[in-house]
């Protein structure tokens, strides 16, 4: 896809830093920068490591409609990753509070480009060139997908650093999930399981990104006046509502034909709550609309079922044994 330089396409340019100091990693202003940097480095991966070709047989068991839906979902995700890699994460660099924060954003930007490329690996493994071209054409013509991209891009090129972080966190922690739903759905039915493995790596990365950008947002808001805090909070919820309305329509465009729209919407609510929490706001959607299909949840996280917990599950059959002596290295699993 040629997402033709989105920043210029809307006639604005992103401010660049005016002066650069060498980054000294031996003088740390915020330990979170080092922690997240290390986490991102440890999580580093490339699509070439995933045996996607093992999914070819499974792909051929999908109906043409299911294949088309899958292709469309992945082009939508490619568009978001392209925006975040080439505009979103980069636009946060000039506002960084610490020099190490700048480095983390460059890492985030690079990984978004890896993600965007990963979808192309899926396409070239599973589909024919005309099918790929067709899906990209759809992504350029779908009104709701383009609107989603446009809303976020507008805020990235605006001049408020905190609003850029809000838009970025909502993209990382909310907007991807209408798309992420589908590979989890296939995985729960033992289809496209290698593709799902790759998507889980992407989801893990986005979780760190959303957490970190949300944290930096909260740091940036700390010293603000009550009036400013209220302004930002109103802005955040308005933007979330605007994106949510659009996301529901986008979800209908994709999933109505396979009857999954309502199931996807629960997944959206569940993730919108976590996006708000990443920004330090209380979750908004009540539990009767965030009860994600357990099959989807366990495709996402194999031990996420409630029975795992002593309070909420049925299992109260733990045995109190004798605690053992522990050393530092014992814990280094």
């Amino acid at each position: 896809m040629t997402v033709t330089d989105p920043a210029h396409a809307i006639g604005k340019s992103i401010p660049l830093v005016r002066a650069v100091s060498a980054i000294n990693w031996n003088r740390i202003h915020d330990d979170k920068d080092v922690e997240v940097w290390n986490r991102l480095v440890n999580n580093f991966w490339l699509p070439e490591k995933i045996p996607l070709s093992n999914d070819v047989q499974s792909w051929n068991t999908l109906t043409p409609e299911e294949q088309q839906l899958t292709m469309r979902v992945f082009t939508g995700l490619t568009l978001l990753d392209t925006i975040q890699g080439t505009v979103g994460a980069i636009s946060l660099i000039p506002d960084a509070i610490t020099p190490h924060e700048e480095s983390v954003y460059t890492n985030i930007a690079f990984m978004e480009s890896v993600h965007a490329k990963s979808y192309s690996s899926i396409f070239s493994t599973l589909a024919s060139t005309p099918e790929i071209d067709d899906a990209f054409r759809w992504s350029e013509e779908n009104v709701n997908l383009q609107k989603k991209a446009q809303i976020v891009l507008d805020y990235y090129t605006g001049d408020d650093p905190l609003k850029r972080k809000v838009a970025s966190t909502l993209l990382e922690s909310f907007l991807f999930y209408s798309g992420f739903y589908l590979p989890m759905y296939w995985s729960s039915r033992a289809k496209l399981t290698n593709t799902a493995d790759m998507i889980r790596l992407i989801i893990r990365d986005e979780a760190v990104h959303g957490y970190y950008i949300g944290y930096k947002f909260q740091k940036g808001l700390e010293g603000a006046s009550d009036e400013r805090k209220q302004e930002i909070k109103d802005y955040t919820f308005n933007l979330l509502f605007e994106l949510y309305d659009n996301e529901v329509q986008y979800t209908q465009d994709l999933y109505d034909s396979v009857g999954l729209t309502e199931d996807v919407k629960k997944f959206l609510h569940y993730n919108a709550n976590k996006a708000l929490m990443n920004l330090g706001y209380e979750p908004m959607f009540p539990k009767d609309v965030t009860d994600v299909n357990p099959a989807i949840l366990s495709a996402l996280s194999p031990n996420a079922d409630e029975n795992h917990d002593f309070f909420s599950g049925s299992g109260s059959s733990y045995v109190i044994g004798k605690a053992e002596t522990t050393e530092d290295e014992d814990w280094d699993f």
Partner: peptide, 30 residues
């Protein structure tokens, strides 16, 4: 965060096993 897949609340499982106490509950974010 369930988005960490197998790593979801892993610290709770590790400590429950090490110290032989029940993992009572898991929450996401706050």
């Amino acid at each position: 965060n369930t988005n960490f897949g197998e790593g979801y609340c892993l610290a709770g499982d590790i400590i429950a096993a090490k110290c032989q106490v029940p993992l009572l509950y898991r929450v996401e974010v706050f």
